[in-house]
Deep mutational scan, measured.
Amino acid sequence: MGFKLLSKLLVYLTASIMAIASPLAFSVDSSGEYPTVSEIPVGEVRLYQIADGVWSHIATQSFDGAVYPSNGLIVRDGDELLLIDTAWGAKNTAALLAEIEKQIGLPVTRAVSTHFHDDRVGGVDVLRAAGVATYASPSTRRLAEVEGNEIPTHSLEGLSSSGDAVRFGPVELFYPGAAHSTDNLIVYVPSASVLYGGCAIYELSRTSAGNVADADLAEWPTSIERIQQHYPEAQFVIPGHGLPGGLDLLKHTTNVVKAHTNRSVVE
């Protein structure tokens, strides 16, 4: 069995187990497998329904001669939608809004960016022009300005110390501490036991640490421990890039980060 097929099978099995364990909360999309990078042309966006009122959005972007996937989250909030992270750029984010209108038909009224990198804030200006209120932590807003990236308009308070959590509509926002970046936030959907790890969490097929220019490698494993301790009931975990899975993604990420750190020390 090929690795790609095995990865998709694991996603399907995880979703099936969740649907059985929580039949009222989960209505997993039966329309197909989780979209992969090879299936999404740059400039297009796919939506994948995880649970009743919960979707991931998947886009792709060219970077350094390669094409990478990027995940975000959409959560229903009454007759409105909360968006977590842009679709990595203005063109993708405009396509995301169009796809949401086509498939869901509810307005996106608020959006949260989970850290300051372009795959999370690139497209904020498109959201703002569409009347979406954009939010991020003060740290993310400051770092985005320093980096020359787009800056969300509103500040999220109460997320300055490791372990801080605040309720934001249908989700809980959690600051686990520094990891992929010093400002990275985690998003949890309690009604569906869905954990969105953003770039602080890796997919299972990833074996290298990737972009760690703004990471705190020493603190990252401790931050992941905080996530595990705060959300032990999480059933569906979405990484910032690639295929979702279960809580095993947290341990896998820790292993990859520690291996990278150990290699760096040896070198």
Rank of each mutant, 00 (worst) to 15 (best):
E80N: 09
N262P: 09
G163M: 03
D125I: 08
T253L: 01
L9E: 07
T14I: 04
S70F: 03
D164F: 04
D183S: 01
G122E: 04
G246C: 11
A209E: 08
T153G: 09
G43E: 09
R120E: 12
N262E: 06
S181H: 01
T36N: 04
S30C: 12
V45E: 14
H115M: 00
H180Y: 02
E203W: 03
E33D: 07
I238R: 01
F3D: 12
V257Q: 12
G53D: 14
G198L: 00
H154C: 14
A192Q: 03
I201S: 10
K251W: 04
K258G: 08
E101C: 08
S16M: 03
L156K: 03
Y231N: 14
K258I: 11
G242N: 03
R263K: 15
E233W: 07
G78W: 06
D79R: 05
G53N: 04
H260W: 06
E150H: 03
H115A: 01
A130V: 09
L156Q: 04
V108W: 00
L243K: 06
G197C: 06
K4M: 03
S155I: 15
H230A: 12
L195K: 00
G240D: 01
D79W: 13
T207Y: 14
S70R: 01
E80K: 13
R128D: 09
P152N: 04
A130N: 15
A133I: 14
D183L: 00
G122R: 08
D29K: 09
R120C: 09
H180K: 00
Q103S: 13
S191E: 05
E157A: 10
A129R: 09
H57N: 02
P176D: 00
K8E: 12
I20F: 03
G105H: 06
A178R: 06
E147L: 06
V132R: 01
D183W: 01
E145T: 08
G169T: 05
P23G: 11
T36H: 06
P152T: 07
S162C: 07
V11D: 09
L250I: 05
L5D: 14
R141S: 11
N149I: 05
G78F: 03
L13G: 11
A218H: 15
A133W: 11
E172A: 14
G177I: 01
Q235D: 05
Y12G: 08
H57V: 10
D29S: 05
R167E: 03
I58Q: 07
S30V: 08
Y48M: 06
V194D: 00
V256D: 11
K4I: 15
S137P: 04
G89H: 14
S22F: 05
L83A: 07
L159N: 14
Q228M: 15
D85T: 00
P107Y: 03
L81M: 07
A98G: 04
S139P: 10
I50Y: 03
N184E: 01
S193L: 09
R120W: 01
D248T: 11
L185R: 00
M1R: 11
R76A: 12
H117K: 00
V28E: 06
S27I: 10
M18L: 03
D85W: 00
Q49K: 12
G246M: 09
H115E: 00
L73E: 02
V75H: 04
S27A: 08
R120H: 14
V75N: 02
G123S: 02
I151L: 08
G53K: 03
A200V: 06
L156R: 02
V112N: 01
W220C: 03
W88G: 14
T14C: 07
L82S: 06
F26T: 03
L143D: 05
K91S: 06
G246D: 10
G245H: 15
L5H: 15
V256W: 14
V124S: 08
T93V: 12
L73D: 00
I84G: 11
G105R: 12
V45L: 11
S181A: 07
H230W: 08
Q61S: 11
A21D: 14
H117S: 00
P107I: 07
I100G: 12
P244C: 10
A98K: 00
Y202M: 02
G148I: 06
E157D: 15
A59L: 13
G72A: 04
H180T: 00
A178P: 09
A25S: 13
G89A: 12
I201Q: 00
V189H: 14
T253H: 02
S30I: 03
P244N: 04
A215N: 13
N211A: 08
A51V: 08
T153Y: 15
T254L: 10
R46G: 11
G245N: 11
L249K: 02
S181W: 00
Y12P: 15
P170G: 09
L73T: 04
S155L: 10
T140G: 09
I186N: 12
E99G: 10
Q228D: 04
H115T: 00
A200C: 11
A19L: 12
V166M: 05
L247F: 02
V121W: 01
G148D: 10
G163Y: 10
G2H: 14
A15M: 15
Y188L: 05
Q49H: 07
Y202V: 03
R120Y: 01
E267N: 02
S161E: 13
V37R: 09
V126G: 09
A51M: 13
G131P: 02
R76I: 08
D52M: 14
S30H: 09
G78N: 11
L9C: 09
F116E: 03
L173M: 09
M1K: 14
E219L: 09
S191R: 07
V237C: 06
V45F: 06
V108G: 07
V171H: 00
H180N: 00
T182R: 07
T153V: 09
G78I: 13
V146R: 13
I227R: 01
R206E: 07
S16P: 10
L13Q: 02
L97A: 03
A129L: 14
A66K: 10
Y196A: 14
E39T: 09
T261I: 02
F174C: 10
I17K: 03
F236M: 03
V121I: 14
M18I: 03
P23T: 05
G89N: 13
L195Q: 00
A25V: 06
A95P: 14
G177W: 00
I40L: 08
V54F: 02
T14L: 11
R263G: 09
E101S: 14
P190E: 05
T114Y: 00
K258N: 03
N262Q: 03
V171S: 12
L156N: 02
L249N: 15
G43D: 06
E203T: 15
S191K: 06
P239F: 01
P239M: 01
V108P: 14
A165F: 12
G53Q: 08
G123C: 01
G89K: 05
T93S: 11
L250D: 02
H154Q: 14
P190D: 10
L173Q: 01
S139Q: 12
Q49R: 11
L10V: 09
Q103M: 03
E203V: 02
Y231P: 00
A165R: 09
T60H: 05
A111T: 10
H241F: 00
S113W: 02
A165S: 10
Q61V: 11
S191C: 04
A21G: 10
G163P: 04
V194W: 02
L47P: 02
R128E: 06
